[in-house]
């Protein structure tokens, strides 16, 4: 059984698997999972053993006409298989209740914790840091080791905020029904986040990233994202960008707040949550920042069916210029 747990622990990607937890919350949940799996393996082994024994030992030989003894029951046995499961459930139930209360701790007033308001949209994530007055999208930057206190809500339908390797999920509800959770990432790295509640055609593509950076990098990011941003140098591209992009999106202090904030999009891990930025593309959803931005802006519906951006009417030059401009919108906070 210990072997089984060991095998499980080695399973899956470090940034995605619940079996390979990277933070204390996921760790605690994994602990409970391991306890439950161990108890349940005992049940499985007992039932399978009896089943196999019975079907081999008591199978009917051909032509056998004997009538077996008609047993009504057995009080001793019946008490055993009532009491033992109850004991097993107590062993599982007590830590479950403890953990339920432990994971519902409220860090919203804790000055040491980083406060984040998560708002889900069809099909993107908005992250607001009320203490710093910052809003960003798709990529949650957090300082390593700090407790992140999350308030989660939805702007439209139900979604669910899930970072498997860091913490279990919490639904984002519409209306004033705000949920709370917390998590932290002791190690630096990028962790994959997913939407876990059916929210429309692109539900499966509604990914986000959590990026854990050391505290001084985080401070630099907080400062950098509030810097003003210049428009594209080419006036034609700048005009197109202003009229066709900034009506919905924001960069720096310009533009509207309704849709994903694009400040620093050039240094994010992905475009649209799923087009992974890399100079060494291996899969269909990977490419350079520029290629990904170009692909997204050219036809967002191809990447995420049913998203609200729709095809924007741009000339080839404008498209190229905007993709290039955005790919160069970088925040240099990592050193």
């Amino acid at each position: 059984m210990a072997m089984m747990v060991l095998v499980l622990a080695a399973c899956g990607r470090e940034d995605l698997s619940t079996l390979n937890p990277q933070g204390p919350v996921a760790e605690e949940q994994f602990g409970l999972m391991k306890l439950a799996i161990s108890i349940m393996l005992i049940v499985i082994v007992v039932v399978f053993a009896i089943t196999i024994y019975v079907i081999i030992r008591f199978r009917r030989r051909s032509g056998d006409k004997t009538i077996p003894k008609q047993v009504e029951g057995n009080h001793k046995l019946e008490i055993i298989w009532t009491v033992i499961p109850i004991i097993m459930l107590i062993i599982l139930g007590v830590p479950t209740v403890q953990s339920v209360f432990n994971l519902s701790k409220d860090y919203s007033k804790d000055p040491e914790a980083v406060q984040v308001i998560v708002t889900s949209h069809q099909y993107w994530w908005e992250f607001e840091y009320p203490d710093y007055g910052i809003k960003t999208a798709q990529e949650l930057i957090i300082p390593t080791g700090k407790t992140i206190s999350v308030k989660a809500k939805s702007a439209d339908v139900l979604h669910s905020f899930w970072i498997p390797s860091l913490a279990g999920k919490i639904d984002t509800n519409p209306g004033a029904n705000v949920n709370a959770m917390y998590f932290s990432a002791p190690k630096e790295g990028v962790y994959l986040g997913k939407c876990a509640e059916l929210c429309g055609p692109s539900h499966g593509l509604m990914d986000f990233k959590v990026k854990s950076v050391d505290e001084s990098s985080f401070d630099r990011w907080v400062a950098a994202i509030q810097e003003p941003v210049a428009l594209p140098s080419d006036p034609a591209v700048a005009a197109a960008f202003e009229s066709k992009c900034l009506s919905c999106h924001a960069v720096g202090d310009m533009g509207g707040p309704a849709y994903p904030n694009l400040t620093g999009i050039g240094s994010r891990e992905s475009v649209g949550g799923i087009l992974v930025n890399t100079d060494d593309p291996k899969y269909d959803n990977e490419g350079s920042v520029y290629d990904n931005l170009y692909r997204w802006i050219e036809n967002p519906d191809d990447v995420k069916p049913g998203n609200q951006m729709g095809k924007i009417d741009l000339t080839e030059q404008e498209l190229d210029g905007i993709a290039k401009y955005l790919s160069e919108l970088k925040l240099n906070y990592e050193q």
């Binding site: 996921a26 439950a36 479950t96 669910s160 279990g168």
Partner: peptide
């Protein structure tokens, strides 16, 4: 048995809708 596993709410935060 997976039903009992799902019954443990904190672990279910991981299993749920997966």
């Amino acid at each position: 048995v997976t039903g009992v596993m799902l019954a443990a709410a904190p672990a279910d935060f991981q299993y749920h809708d997966s």
